[in-house]
Write a protein that binds this DNA or RNA. Structure first.
Lengths: 334, 334
DNA sequence: CTGTTAGCGCATTCAA
DNA sequence: TTGAATGCGCTAACAG
């Protein structure tokens, strides 16, 4: 239906080869001819078929973004959205098309991620929001398809990853609390299926140990990253360890829930109990008191993932694990 | 590089024609042959090239999602993300691929949206987050490319739209306030480039007029949908109309900012001043007091847009304007 | 400098 | 029931 290269060729009175050359900036085309072709192409609003070009060149110049179930995720919205933006923008900077897919896309079509990508001849994938135990994920990791994962520390021949330096991020938080004189510092973690949870726990532990605080029993509670989880975990924490003076939460949402829980229990923030979160979501600046938190650089994270993928695609570079420095944002909750 | 239909044909000792038929469920294939072909295809992990298929069938089975600049938008995150999820999920339900593009993708590549879509042979587009005055948008609307816009009431031969019934949504809010006995009800609107702003204003006005309140001067203020905007607008409002007893904000973010502003001014919510927002973002349930708001059904909005696009694509249906009913969520701020 | 030829991987006539 | 031939729109050798 659309205008093809043939139409342009006929109208300009040349062969399609010449049209192709003229439009692709080939050297060997007469200036007059070129000009005429360009004029005709523009007049006819000719747009080369990306599909046909992909077929003959054997490369689609497009990569997939694989996201875990869109709607089931609540709370991770901000994180995912910003990272997605970074991925998209950087990709289109490099001239790549972006094909969106989610874990349930594949499920619906009854094909694995790898098969989906193979069919579309995607040149690479960026993965985000997946859990370590996703059944299809390992297949992706083992496949020759260039892959970069966000927040999943898996490294293989064709798969690299990008994530915040969660260990040091957690250390920043704890050290900040220690510097304020706190000793009884509790930690409310996210769910255990997330790789980041392990790192944040480790950072917390190491910072505490380094300060000579070795008995962490009753100070660590596992929750689920959500607001409600933060409320509940805090109540449990207050029960099993009433003399805490500070709590470090593995997410801002939990921290905000935590402040609610503390308030319900009659504790004042930051006077009775100091609070630190993780993520630096917009909301943290709005709540009262404003939340001290460890910020993740979400948009750059997306960009970084893509630039790594690009170097794999273009230069055949080996994938790496790349850690982004988090930043402590001190506000009034501490 | 990947396995092609040829490889399967050779391995199975048949022609590629037969392979094609067998794999596409053609009737006229011997049961034995079919089985053998299926077995071979599976063993070789053959995946038909979506690219080649698109070329020969002259349809790509993929649609584009056009989003305004990803990173410049702050605050609309939730809205965009949920709608995006709805769009994506429904699209993949129908078997369509999803190509993501943003306004700056096109700008970077120096082509209009239409050209971008034409090159990729996208069959349709869903547009979201664009402003009415976007330079390229009208081109899209006028083009023969099937299009559905979110929150942009433009209707043309090939362009339909989906949005919340903002007029009635605003009426719900105002009527709720009226029923609580309020008369001095102010309205803080979003920026004027958004179509929704006009509708919400109109709903507010009509509801007030219907209640016999005709003098709305000093009661309406224009802001920008943001938290900060809400704070400032509220201060201004309190200045020019100190005796307001209720404020309806055109976004939850502004409403939350407004509650902050009210608190700063020593007014209590809801005792001194009642507050209603618009959007029903998660945050609204978390703040204190919890925010009464007009909820938009974001995920269904995305789904609806796609089902409309699908009927246009598949059945040649004419595009329509579809309004989704909003819902009043009453919480403690009123 | 330009045109002819040959595919890319697949679906689809038309014959056999 | 199967296969050979044709072409989707385009690029890239190879000639001229």
């Amino acid at each position: 239906m659309p205008v093809t290269i043939r139409d342009v060729a006929r109208e300009a009175g040349v062969s399609i080869t010449t049209v192709s050359r003229a439009l692709n900036g080939g050297e060997d085309v007469g200036p007059q001819t070129r000009e005429r072709i360009l004029e005709v192409a523009q007049r006819l609003r000719y747009r080369p078929s990306h599909v046909a070009r992909s077929l003959v060149r054997q490369q689609t110049e497009s990569v997939g973004i694989l996201v875990s179930d869109f709607n089931k995720d609540s709370g991770g919205h901000h994180f995912m959205f910003d990272v997605l933006a970074g991925i998209h923008d950087q990709l289109s900077e490099y001239g790549y098309d972006v094909v969106l897919m989610s874990t349930n896309t594949a499920r619906q079509r009854m094909v694995s991620y790898v098969d989906f990508c193979t069919e579309r001849r995607l040149e690479g994938v960026v993965v985000m929001g997946l859990r370590l135990d996703d059944p299809y994920f390992s297949e992706l990791v083992d496949s020759p398809l260039p892959t970069v994962a966000i927040d999943l520390p898996v490294l293989s021949e064709h798969c690299g990853y990008v994530m915040s330096d969660n260990i040091n991020g957690a250390k920043f938080a704890v050290k900040h609390l220690l510097s304020k004189g706190h000793r009884k510092i509790a930690f409310v973690n996210g769910h255990q299926q997330a790789a980041v949870s392990l790192d944040r726990l480790r950072g917390y532990q190491e910072a505490m140990w380094a300060a000579g605080i070795t008995d962490l029993s009753n100070l660590v509670i596992n929750s689920d990253f959500t607001y409600e989880g933060g409320v509940e975990a805090t109540q449990q924490l207050l029960h099993q360890c009433p003399d805490v003076t500070a709590v470090f939460y593995a997410s801002d949402l939990m921290a905000i829930g935590g402040m609610k829980g503390l308030s319900l229990a009659g504790r004042r923030v930051p006077d009775d109990v100091a609070v630190v979160g993780f993520d630096n979501i917009d909301l943290g600046a709005i709540v009262t008191p404003a939340l001290t938190t460890v910020g993740q650089r979400r948009y750059p994270m997306g960009q970084t993932a893509v630039s790594m993928l690009y170097s794999m695609l273009r230069d055949g570079d080996a994938p790496t694990g790349r850690l982004l420095a988090p930043e402590l944002v001190v506000r009034s909750s501490t």
